[in-house]
Design a protein around this nucleic acid. Structure first.
Length: 485
DNA sequence: CTGGGGATGGGGCCC
DNA sequence: AGGGCCCCATCCCCA
């Protein structure tokens, strides 16, 4: 191919003046250009390997890489910034040192820079993505995201096949169908992901992964929107400002962790593209969501690399880095928990109002505050109430206590007085049955329809009678059941 | 418009 | 490793 191109190039350049050659010449020029670029890159790669004309030294955890500053400048935002700052002393070689990623990872990235081929595997994709984020190489990040996404897609497809057809022999055909058209695709049998990556390898221009056009609300189904306008606007802004993980800045310019600040509440509506990538699906069918999230989590030990952040005076501090943002945590469990804000997984549905939560404790807190009246305080006058001086009332799906005076003032029209619940709250939830409390919580989480006593005492059950869309909730109960089994 | 309080979500960390 | 608690930030509602 290259030879043909070369020959054509030569021929056309020899006969520029012949009639009818204008169009042919233009086509040849394009091919020549591509060929020329390819050869030039190849030549530069050769020079790099022979350490010829290299004017940039990159030290990664003690290993020295030599490269050309022009190439690095054109490939990485980080180097662009770095080299721009030192542009005045062009004659001297530039040095950069990294300890935030390993030499192997940098080698993969450097190979990509000089060849356009990214050697991704399930083992290195997260670290490559992390390093690419650091180096501000958005194309690499996009490929990594696509790689991860396709791994999920493939997992889902495989699961679908496994569910529909019990015969395991179809697994090979699936793989065959997904085999790459690109012969350069990395083929590692041990990796669960490699077949998916083939589409990207060697052809970085191919936009295999379609970025979501706009941040999509995670609350596609399920919980009703509670936070509209202002939040949506703010989060749209966040999505604009925080295209994580591609939106990294130089470490010196941006705090390493987003902290408890502006971006914290983005999990519901505003998502980074990576967030949206996962969350859209994950908000759909809860069982599928959990399944996919589980698949993602299952890959954590290999796919989510351990990032060593080195303290200068102490031993290396091992931390787990979120592949979607800059956040790092000490424990993998915390990372798993954190990932839910990216995946959109909400495995804990409230059976009373169908709102879903990322954590059991949040669900419990929600249920206690919203659907049970735990506080012995009158909601209106804030005075302390007892069993005698106040009662539990329900308004919509919310329950709270009012003192008898406030109940009389508000009248029975606006609130539904729920004496049975008051009794249950008093007798069971506060005093005598504390030990059973957890079991009850778990019991209603398990949606145990056989337990009549539970149904009587459960606030959820009482509320379901009041809410219009109870059928939907019952469906949700059935739907969500597998999550807890 | 503003401030207070409730609800919610996320991080750190202990058990 | 998971559950749970505490703390804090943010959002929303309401007076």
């Amino acid at each position: 191919m290259e030879m043909v191109s070369e020959m054509r190039t030569k021929r056309s350049s020899r006969t520029p003046g012949e009639p009818g050659q204008q169009h042919a010449l233009r086509v040849s020029s394009t091919e020549m250009s591509v060929s020329h670029q390819s050869r030039l890159l190849k030549q530069l790669d050769e020079q790099r390997r022979q350490e010829l004309f290299c004017d940039c030294n990159v030290l990664v955890e003690g290993r020295l890489f030599k490269a050309h500053r022009n190439v690095l400048f054109g490939s990485s935002g980080y180097f662009r910034m770095l080299l721009s700052q030192g542009a005045q002393n062009c004659g001297e070689p530039v040095s950069a040192s990294f300890e935030v990623f390993s030499p192997d990872i940098f080698s993969v990235i450097l190979d990509f820079v000089y060849s356009g081929q990214l050697d991704l595997t399930s083992d290195n994709v997260i670290e490559v993505m992390s390093a690419a984020s650091y180096l501000q190489m958005n194309d690499v990040i996009s490929f990594c995201k696509g790689f991860i996404k396709s791994s999920l897609d493939i997992s889902a497809k495989e699961d679908d096949e496994h569910m529909s057809e019990s015969d395991s022999s179809h697994g090979t055909s699936t793989d065959a169908e997904l085999q790459p058209a690109c012969p350069d695709a990395p083929q590692k049998d041990s990796s669960p992901l490699p077949t998916a990556w083939s589409g990207y390898c060697g052809s970085p221009q191919i936009d295999y992964y379609q970025e979501p056009e706009a941040p999509s609300p995670k609350r596609a189904t399920g919980t009703p929107p509670q936070r509209g306008g202002r939040k949506a606007q703010q989060q749209a802004h966040e999505a604009e400002v925080l295209p994580d993980p591609g939106g990294y800045q130089l470490p010196t310019l941006v705090p390493e962790s987003r902290g408890k600040g502006s971006g914290k509440r983005k999990s519901w509506n505003a998502l980074s593209d990576a967030d949206a990538m996962y969350s859209l699906d994950l908000q759909g069918a809860p069982s599928l969501k959990a399944q996919k999230a589980d698949e993602l989590y299952a890959t954590l030990p290999t796919i989510v690399g351990v990032v060593g952040l080195f303290n200068k005076d102490t031993s290396p501090t091992m931390r787990f880095k979120c592949p979607f943002c800059t956040h790092t945590v000490k424990r993998k469990a915390d990372l798993k928990r954190h990932l839910r804000c990216h995946t959109g997984e909400r495995p804990y549905p409230c059976e009373a109002c169908s709102k879903r939560f990322t954590r059991l404790e949040h669900l419990r807190s929600h249920f206690e505050t919203i659907h049970q009246a735990r506080k012995l305080v009158c909601r209106k006058c804030k005075r302390h109430v007892t069993e005698q001086s106040g009662r539990v009332v329900s308004e919509g799906t919310r329950r709270y206590r009012l003192c008898n005076e406030c109940i009389q003032e508000s009248g029975c029209d606006s609130v539904v007085i729920d004496s049975s619940d008051a009794a249950s709250s008093e007798s069971g939830l506060f005093l005598a049955v504390d030990t059973e409390e957890e079991d009850r919580d778990k019991a209603w989480l398990m949606a145990d329809d056989d337990d009549d006593d539970l149904a009587e005492d459960s606030g959820a059950d009482l509320i379901i009678q009041e809410v219009d869309d109870s059928e939907e909730e019952l469906d949700l109960q059935c739907e969500n059941q597998p999550v807890f089994t």
